[in-house]
Design a protein around this nucleic acid. Structure first.
Length: 801
RNA sequence: GGGCGGUUAGCUCAGUUGGGAGAGCGCUUCCCUUACAAGGAAGAAGUCGCAGGUUCGAGCCCUGCACCGCCCACCA
């Protein structure tokens, strides 16, 4: 019935299905129970399971499973995110492949296409979540574009607008010419890029001489409105306040002084192009300069004489123009970091544009308070400080996007330019009563709706039973880069709309690097697919292997960690096989009569307390370590070896105790290795419930936990020296059963052991002979040293040194 | 440029108020013993990045340096 080797294939899918079918993942409001909630981060609807998801799920699911067994009403909330730009990208690609485009088919048809695409391909990731054994309440799956969710987003937007925290402003923003939308700073990536730096002379308007400027973007020269120099730069003080002539346009522009110009870079003079550079924009606004633009939304030129050209083509024309007139001083290779769209890797075009903004200054105060008071705690601790820092420095948030897939902003403009903001379409402008209204076409940043995840998933804005019972939640497990994009905003929205923090603990997991230390990424070809690991090693092994790494530093992926998990499952399986086959038939109540039995139960209690305490600090790595060693060393190598004989001999007490010990071990292991433990559980006699919902054990008496320590120590000594120590009674029986003196003595080397003990004794005597040590060291350290010395002397006597 | 983390055995990593350098994998030797060879037993293997300092005592605390990684900012 139980094969000698544990094979996770088939077993794991079977339990995943059973657990879900039997409703054991479900969490319903129950006033009799204390809730424990992890609103799991909704992955992109277009996404696939990657290593980060796998780790995140393993951590969250371990906590949820333990809490569920401990009697909490454990809710693991699933769902997925509409992922505005990413999803739009995928569907647009499909349209282009068909020879059409979203512009061609129009907004309404495009949205239908997205829905159709989602219907067919979206949400696959939830099936992959199931394969991870994640005990999410799949009935409660939410999508950020569900009707109810959209209603919640509209309510939130209007709420913020009425509070005065949302405003419109014409500012320079990151613009992706491919998507033709604005992007927040957090959606932009910077890469080192090879470029050319051109030094160009701007002749003085009032006579001879010139100022040379260095630029990487000659195409924007027609939009220049000034040249800036540092006020303390002696080379240029005479030029300040005079005018220079901009090449190509031959416009006259002023030379201004500004401290943001770096004297040491290039020529020390900077052309000011407010419409196409963030720093220039800032300088321009302070100096009251105009903001002409020479680039269209598609990144092509609109300047006179250059219409429709790409920037490269325009740059060439302008450079040629300069060269003919002797204004091009030089053109040299230059490597610098350039901003790209995170999604399509198109070069970002800074652009002045009217956008919706969320003002952060006032908004962030309550979240900051919650973090500083540690109402919310990030783990590990270093991330807590980072979270506070990043919130303190959070700039106003650009929340509008010029794409089509997302939550359309609920704002209507009348022909006079008045804005009416409300949840549903107004019949007339609230300011002038005009009935000719057009709706804002922009949609909201994806993260705007994500910010509401902890309560919108529970039914907000309706006052539902779920919302009352399950809010506020407890746990978030998430990736570091999400702290600014998401965590901070959830905290704010929860405090603002619900009046309470959305969760108490945020576990920031480490980044799993490729075995060579590089980042795992598809484009680098360094990615490892967790589904392949599951196929090969099983889900339990994969979960164990990922959680075995600490959270405090990024860690290189290693297959041997996963293999270790597989070995643990197999070892447990075989230990259970021994117990189950030896203990067939009716069993009396647990009766730990012998030393080794008392010791095993005490060790299990001790391990349980350690695990509980480790997990209170979200120390998953050491939890795995405890589980591994209690299984291999304590349960198998000592306890089972010691009682094996009695089990085979039909000792009823031994059998009952072995079964009880196995049960407790399975419970401790279940949150980490859910499938193999449930499978074993099903072979135990007289089960009345599944292990997944079995009660977490009460920790028992630990007083005999170290009763075998002496025997173990002597066993180690014996193995080194080959000299059988003087033992009696239980100790002798256990020693003989586990150590098997007749087989091991071959490697004994009493001389080496004697030498080792003498060295230890010498060291101890030296320390205790040091008056300053005895006087200064803590008393317990000195006492421990004396005891050690005594012990070594006794052992030396025992082997006849 | 700012911040954070790291450097410990061949590899991946632990090391909790300063007090005996550890685990898993790999390697060597022995054992297919009636749960398990994905097993058992034993063993070899480390100048704890470098240089100073504090201390009776430093992998751990302090200072400086080197190298690796991540995040942020910026680059005309």
């Amino acid at each position: 019935m139980m094969e000698p080797r544990y094979d996770p294939h088939g077993v794991e899918e079977r339990w995943q299905k059973t657990w879900e079918d039997e409703g054991l993942y479900n969490a319903d409001p129950d006033p009799a129970k204390t809730p424990y909630v992890d609103a799991h981060p909704p992955p992109n609807v277009t996404g696939e399971l990657h290593m980060g998801h796998a780790l995140q799920l393993a951590l969250g699911d371990l906590m949820i499973r333990m809490k569920r067994m401990q009697g909490f009403n454990a809710l693991f909330q699933p769902g997925y995110d509409h992922a505005g730009i990413s999803t739009q990208n995928v569907v647009e690609k499909a349209l282009i492949a068909e020879g059409t485009s979203r512009q061609e088919i129009g907004r309404e048809a495009f949205e239908e296409r997205v829905w159709a695409w989602l219907h067919e391909y979206g949400g696959k990731i939830l099936h992959q979540f199931r394969r991870m054994g994640a005990s999410l309440d799949y009935r409660r799956t939410r999508f950020t574009m569900d009707d109810d969710y959209v209603r919640a987003v509209m309510r939130f937007f209007v709420h913020l607008y009425n509070r005065g925290w949302i405003y419109r402003a014409n500012r320079i923003i990151n613009w992706c010419p491919h998507h033709e939308t604005s992007l927040s700073d957090l959606e932009v990536v910077h890469d080192d890029t090879d470029d050319a730096l051109s030094t160009i002379r701007y002749p003085l308007a009032d006579g001879d001489g010139y100022i040379a400027i260095a630029t990487v973007r000659p195409a924007t020269i027609p939009a220049d409105v000034a040249v800036a120099v540092h006020p303390d730069d002696p080379r240029y003080t005479a030029f300040i306040g005079r005018e220079v002539i901009v090449p190509w346009t031959e416009n006259r522009v002023p030379v201004i002084a500004d401290e943001r110009v770096e004297i040491d870079f290039g020529t020390g003079a900077l052309k000011i192009t407010p419409a196409h550079d963030p720093k220039d924009f800032e300088i321009g606004r302070e100096h009251g300069l105009p903001e002409p633009s020479v680039l269209g939304p598609d990144g092509r030129m609109t300047a006179a004489g250059l219409e429709g050209l790409t920037q490269d083509e325009a740059a060439q024309k302008i450079l040629d123009w300069c060269k003919e007139r002797g204004l091009l001083e030089k053109r040299e290779h230059y490597r610098h970091s350039v901003a790209f769209c995170e999604r399509c890797h198109t070069r970002i075009e800074p652009r002045i544009s009217m956008q919706w903004w969320c003002a952060m200054e006032e908004i962030k105060q309550r979240p900051l308070e919650a973090l500083r008071n540690r109402e919310i705690v990030y783990h590990p601790e270093s991330q807590h400080r980072f979270a506070i820092d990043s919130l303190e420095n959070a700039p106003d948030w650009n929340i509008s996007r010029q794409i089509w897939w997302g939550h359309q902003i609920p704002a209507w403009f009348c022909s006079d330019g008045h804005v009416t903001v409300q949840e549903t379409e107004p019949s007339a402008c609230t300011e002038c009563g005009s009935t000719e209204l057009t709706r804002e076409t922009d949609v909201l940043d994806t993260w705007f709706s994500s910010a509401m995840w902890p309560f919108a998933t529970l039914g907000w804005p309706d006052d539902t039973e779920s919302l009352r019972h399950f809010y506020p939640g407890d746990l978030q497990t998430t990736a570091r880069e999400i702290i600014r994009l998401w965590e901070n905003r959830m905290i704010f929205s929860g405090l603002e709309l619900m009046g309470e923090i959305p969760f108490k603990d945020v576990v920031i997991h480490s980044t799993v690097l490729a075995p060579d230390g590089r980042r795992m990424s598809k484009s680098l070809g360094t990615g490892i697919d967790p589904l392949e690991l599951i196929e090969k090693y099983g889900t339990d092994a994969t979960r164990y292997g990922l959680m075995r790494n600490s959270l405090t530093q990024d860690v290189r992926f290693s297959y041997s960690a996963i293999e270790e998990g597989g070995k643990l499952a197999n070892k447990l399986w075989n230990a259970a096989r021994l117990v189950v086959t030896a203990c067939e038939g009716a069993l009396p109540a647990e009766k730990p009569s012998s030393l080794e039995e008392q010791w095993m139960l005490a060790r299990l209690s001790q391990t349980q307390r350690r695990i509980e305490s480790l997990l209170a600090d979200f120390d998953f790595a050491h939890t795995m370590d405890e589980l591994y060693h209690v299984t291999f060393d304590d349960f198998c190598d000592w306890y089972l070896e010691a009682v094996k004989g009695r089990l085979y001999d039909g000792d009823a007490d031994a059998r009952a105790t072995a079964m009880a010990a196995l049960e407790r071990l399975l419970k401790l292991l279940h949150p980490a290795l859910p499938h193999v433990t449930e499978e074993i559980w099903s072979f135990l006699p007289e089960r009345t419930s599944r292990l997944i919902v079995a009660p977490w054990p009460e920790a028992g008496d630990e007083s005999t936990a170290d009763a075998l320590a002496r025997v173990q120590e002597l066993a180690v000594m014996f193995r080194r020296s080959g000299v059988v120590p003087p033992l009696e009674g239980d100790e002798k029986r256990i020693f003989d059963a586990v150590v098997k003196p007749e087989r091991v003595a071959v490697n004994g080397n009493a001389d080496a052991e004697i030498a080792r003990l003498r060295k230890e004794i010498e060291r101890g005597e030296k320390m205790l002979g040091n008056e300053r040590f005895v006087a200064n060291a803590p008393a317990d350290v000195v006492t421990a040293e004396r005891e050690k010395l005594e012990r070594y002397r006794r052992e030396l006597d025992a082997i006849g040194g």
